[in-house]
Design a protein around this nucleic acid. Structure first.
Lengths: 194, 194
DNA sequence: TGTCCATCTGGCACTCGGTGTCAATCAGGC
DNA sequence: GCCTGATTGACACCGAGTGCCAGATGGACA
């Protein structure tokens, strides 16, 4: 680990902390990149060297978590039915990115109330979908490239949709109930089975 | 129908036609608002008086179709199970907005290949979700305002996700198979039943 | 230690989407 | 013919994001 990457990580974390603080106080849309750059002591141009978009500060490592979910899915027993395997894979990956439950709640609310953030969040879920679908195709014994076989896409997309619905409900409910329980209830409603 | 609203409708249609032609030849991102305004013979400012965003030219009346789906859902038999009722409601609303199948195919491909369009399209689906959920809550006998009851949201969101998956597959397959068949296959994969 | 190279940084100019404002225009009712 | 209200174009402005370039800084090597 060279000094370069160490300072880079430090700056990365500093920008994230500074920006999130501004977002949670002023609101996402009311905070400009110039505000963040000024507060973090860097130039506006440098901000874009660490984050491609303003939304990436909030949703940054979502892509990385997709990879974790994919790995968790691969480990599931081969004879488990795809839906159960997907649900289990999602369960096994917790949100370790947040310090407190309150912070996580505030971020969830912000994401679901800010259209641009919501849209980006859904785009990330689409990436997860693309990452998880091949494994489900394999488990279904489907042709990996047949565009007419929509079963795997539908299963993966629906499970992720349940996660999204659960997340929104969790935010609306003020985090009073474990997110997992809401997800299980959503999944059960869609796929039958109590 | 006054002359004002007649000319307004005419201009609206003219902008749509001009813009769609540019989108389908140059691509969505490569077409600027100035291009559209110049080609349609209006000012850049006037464009934004007819369309809130560039994406709205492509996805304009999607919100209106949501209302049609809601009405179709209301008409379904009261004792039909929610999933079946939702699927039937979606079936009953066809895409009447496109002249030819080829044009519809081109637009679908464009939407699914352009991130900003894809995101907006999903946002419109979220609006549909909000419109359809109350009726499903009613059919489930659920408290209309209980944030912890996620069944209705999950059902509606999953059905719409199936529609989205089917639409994407339909585009990838070059429209070789009826969209309805792909939707049915996706819905069946998710909700059990072969 | 001094030199060279790669990387990082800040600043500038630019594009593009989108908004507020204001004066000019134009249809329609009196 | 005149007043009212909607529409229009033009201009200025903002914020996100990008390309470019000169300068600073750390690392490797002689």
């Amino acid at each position: 680990m060279s000094l370069w990457s160490r300072t880079r990580n430090a700056v990365y974390g500093e920008i994230t902390r500074t920006a999130m603080e501004l977002f949670l106080t002023r609101g996402f849309d009311a905070t400009t990149i110039d505000d963040i750059a000024a507060a973090a002591g860097i130039s506006r141009r440098s901000f874009f060297r660490y984050f491609g978009t303003k939304e990436d500060v909030v949703l940054g490592d979502l892509a990385a978590r997709g990879e974790l979910i994919r790995q968790a899915l691969e480990v599931r027993p081969a004879d488990e039915d795809p839906w159960t395997a997907l649900c289990a894979a999602l369960h096994s990956v917790k949100d370790a990115a947040y310090e407190t439950n309150e912070e996580m709640l505030a971020v969830f609310k912000m994401i679901h109330q800010t259209p641009s953030l919501r849209a980006r969040s859904i785009e990330k879920h689409l990436q997860w979908q693309a990452m998880l679908t091949p494994e489900i195709r394999r488990r279904l014994g489907a042709d990996p490239d047949d565009p007419l076989d929509v079963r795997a896409e539908a299963l993966v997309a629906s499970v992720l949709t349940c996660l999204d619905v659960a997340g929104e409900a969790w935010g609306r409910a003020g985090g009073r109930v474990p997110l997992e329980d809401l997800f299980d209830a959503a999944a059960a409603a869609v796929h039958g089975r109590p």
